[in-house]
Structures are given as structure tokens and as C-alpha cells.
Amino acid sequence: MKLAEIKRAVVILVIFLVLLTGVYPAVVTLVGKIAFPGKAGGSLVERNGAVYGSSLIGQPFSDPKYFWPRPSATAPAGRMPYDPMASGGSNLGPTNPALLDETGAAARQLRDSGVSGPLPIDLVTSSASGLDPDITVEAAEAQAARVGQARHMSAAQVEQLINAHKQGRTFGFLGRERVNVLELNLALDAAG
């Protein structure tokens, strides 16, 4: 009786293995490939045949002529910020002096680049994934003057680009208003 039960357990696991880890993901992959090839493949951004990354994965812009993303915690010793091979947050607690060192350093860098007034919180804190592709609209606007100056563009031109890349809340209430940093920066390059 016990032996029959063991056999039953093995057989049923094999059946589920085929159905749940073979057929099921295959169906999803197939439908994804046919119906949503770009999204299933990672929302890659192409320009002139070259792939410039993914619109869902942030990149470590640091040049004054680009909008900067949020700090990224994928960058412990030997690694780079926005490294998709090491996604994750800083995990620093709210009273940890190391956290305040990081936010303080990021704040000084922003001040040095000419941002005045209260600093948008997202520009000094690292995200959960370390790959956050977005910044808030306030964070983009705080950088507009610097970017315009570095590119010899008028404030109105930069403002217009920010507005064109604003993503509103889904259905008007879900999530947060934001700007995709990679898309905005590629648009800047295209505008000259």
C-alpha cells in the first residue's frame, strides 16, 4: 500500500511537471512571441539598428548634458550602478549613518550642479531594484536648467521635451507621474 502511494506521488509529479513547467510556459512564450514580441523580448530601445538598452531598465547617466537617474545600489565595490546582473536596493535602514552619508553626498552633488530649493527625494535615494527607469517630474524639472545650459538649448525647448515624455497615472489614479530617463535623454540627443 505504501509502495503504491509512493508510485502515485511520483507519477502525479511527473504529470504536473509536464503540464505546469512544460506546456504552461510554452503557451505563454508562444502567445507572447506572436502577440507582444517587443514586450516579451524586454522592451528594447533601438535606434538606427543599434540597441540602446531597454526602456524598462535604467542606465547610469552622469554627464551634465543628460538628465541623471536616481542613485543605484547595484554598485558596491567592483560593480557599476544600474547593473542588471545585481538588481536590488541598498537595504540601509532609516537611522543608519551610512544612509545619511549617501543621501548627503547625492544632495551636495545636486547643489553643486545648481539645483536650489528643496531637493526631490527620488534624486537622492536609491530605488528598490537599483534599475528604476523613472524619475519624478519634479526631479526632471530640477535638472532642466543644467541640461539646457550644457546643450545650449533654451529653457522652453527642454521644458517641452520633459512635457512630451511625462507619463501620467494609469487611469488617472494609479501610481505616480514620472519621466523615463533613457527615453528623455535619447530624445535630447535626437534634438541635438
Binding site: 537611522t95 548627503g104 528643496p118 527625494i121 528604476d132 523613472d134
Partner: peptide, 21 residues
Amino acid sequence: PLVHQQGIAGPNMEGKEVRFG
């Protein structure tokens, strides 16, 4: 509040994603 003392404004966004708020 410790971050706010550094001249930074806003909710606690350390370890959170902008799109979710």
C-alpha cells in the same frame, strides 16, 4: 526626518520605485 534635515523634501523613497509611489 533625518533626511529632511539635509534639505531634502518628500516621503521615504529609499528602496522604493518611482512608478509605484
